[in-house]
Nucleic acid binder design. Structure first.
Lengths: 343, 343
DNA sequence: TTGAAAGCGCTAACAT
DNA sequence: ATGTTAGCGCTTTCAA
């Protein structure tokens, strides 16, 4: 279809185009990157030649000389956690739309992997989006000082962030449980290094105090279905009638364990999850959980990052964006059992 | 902690190291990339200086001069399909272990996106792994001719591939259903462009002929839970007592729809899925499905690709690898209903 | 508006 | 074993 530079099969460069048009390579470069700084007629000749030769710019070379790589790193703690699917899709779509490439990295829930990835990305990427960071505040702040960075679900002063407002949804969840007659509720905590988990617990215990009900924190537990068994056992042992879990993964694991133990949900124990991940609607029983526009959160994070990278806009750069969350009630919550089993 | 080149804050280069050690830049390059071609004492000095200066090689520059990028593209049709989670994790782990970076791209089930991505990756990546390609055989073969490429679940002569042997598992599934007394079975087909779906249907219809039972193909359906409703309706209408679905996504969607319609699974309709994705074990009822070592498939694909990239080994390069699959029986299949509802 | 020339940081012959 | 010298393909001064 397209002609190739005489006799060769290697991809065309700006020099091939320059030769074909009888202009200098630098003119080609300009015609392609800053079209308005070149005579319209030569520009058109060049663009035609580029198309003809099937020219594709070499991003490595571009990066080397310009300092910009056209790539953005996206760090998630666990790529197999369904919570991140939509987030990843959101960032990917928005990045692609802006002509950026997404570098997705699974940091394996490890602060060390996260830190070294961040370091290595300073060369490779123009900026980075970090979801659910396991780093300390100081480390994150330092990283944000060295490269454009936006966090998701991690609030550190001075670091732009997209926050999914699960803490307030947690209070909604508590109200829901109270309205069903529950008075003893457990919070099933996530990893110690998860700020989300901490913030939810804070919100929850404050709300509980306001409402005069008892909540206790159990855990920490790893955010995986496998942790659900231990969490369920701990919950049963603690004598609560309802649990609010750090996330749906744990909640679903609890559902499985309770079923194994013959403890009926929601009759004997109510469970609330968080995130509304894939599976929350078809597990057994379907999970009451807190939902939010995750894909949109990814898009917003990208927008915030790109705003920093291309500070062309007149308006100030938004530095913090809160995504709303709401409770989605399904079959895993119901009226509290009569207090016959009380100690 | 580490000293920086006098007065500056920009990342150290091999020139900084060279200056510090009083050697040429090329010696530094060698000491770092091919340590055995340099005097052990100078090498150690250089390595010490590199550590001291906190040196990090610039992969762009490396790529530009060496032609190798150190990156491998991984293309999947839909990043939110849980089937790909473990695959992606497998490729990521294996690539990282070999010092490569993974470029993950969601091709959105589109052959055009896939083709253009492939083209753009020729510059950006040293090779590419394509899962469940939506391209034609010719296009795929052409792509494989231009760059090192390994497919997953796509068998084209001349293109290295990792094949997950679901076709044979499909026969197992049929035998399972037959042993439960089913005689009318439907295959719920996936996308027309999916070779996997085609191969499963072929295997299934041959097996059915052997066993003297009736199977029919319904569809095609998009590989998403939302397609399950239409698939379930079609299955019920067709009068079969059991279905083998293209994948678990569709199967789970069918489960939901049948439940809505008040059709009991497995009493009135048995369902078999494929892939054993996240959720297959906790849906309601738990799904009988075909499982295989997906993460390992990803690792194998990477190994095959890297073998092509670094043809140092003596042995021949394996060009086709088949991953075993087995049936995992859960609650969604049971004895066929008495043929009272027959037309 | 365009061209010439100097790199970006690194690798890879080619000398020594 | 090490230094010298060219580039890789592009952007970006600086002149013209």
């Amino acid at each position: 279809m397209a002609m190739q530079a005489a006799g060769t099969d290697r991809p065309a460069t700006i020099h091939d185009i320059a030769a074909l048009c009888g202009v200098a390579a630098s003119t080609v470069s300009r015609a392609l990157s800053t079209p308005d700084r070149v005579n319209i007629r030569t520009r058109e000749r060049i663009q035609a030649a580029a198309a003809e030769l099937n020219y594709l710019p070499n991003s490595q070379a571009k990066a080397l000389s310009s300092g910009r790589t056209g790539a953005v790193g996206v760090l998630v703690p666990d790529i197999t956690n369904p919570f991140y699917f939509d987030l990843i899709r959101g960032t990917q779509l928005q990045l692609k739309a802006a002509g950026y490439t997404q570098l997705l990295v699974d940091t394996e829930e490890s602060d060390e992997v996260e830190a070294s990835t961040l370091e290595q990305l300073r060369k490779t990427a123009d900026g980075v989006i970090v979801a659910a960071s396991r780093l300390t505040d100081d480390a994150l702040l330092a990283a944000a000082g060295k490269a454009p960075l936006v966090t998701i679900n991690r609030d550190v002063a001075g670091v732009p962030a997209v926050i999914i407002d699960t803490p307030s949804a947690t209070s909604q969840a508590l109200d829901h449980l109270i309205s069903l007659g529950h008075t003893r509720v457990a919070y099933i905590a996530g990893p110690l290094t998860s700020q989300s988990s901490e913030r939810r617990w804070t919100a929850l215990s404050e709300a509980a105090q306001d409402r005069g009900v008892e909540v206790r924190s159990l855990g920490p537990f790893a955010p995986k279905t496998q942790s659900g068994a231990a969490a369920a056992d701990a919950a049963v042992h603690s004598g609560v009638t309802a649990c609010i879990a750090f996330n749906d993964l744990i909640a679903i694991g609890m559902l499985q364990r309770l079923r194994e133990r013959g403890i009926r949900v929601p009759e004997e124990m109510s469970i609330v999850g968080c995130d509304d991940i894939f599976g929350a609607d078809f597990c057994n029983p379907p999970l009451t959980t807190m939902a939010s526009p995750i894909e949109q959160a990814g898009r917003v994070a990208v927008s915030m990052l790109l705003a920093k990278l291309n500070p062309l806009a007149g308006g100030g750069i938004r530095t913090r964006s809160v995504m709303p969350t709401h409770l989605t009630v399904r079959g895993s919550t119901a009226a509290a059992p009569a207090p016959s089993t009380a100690p």
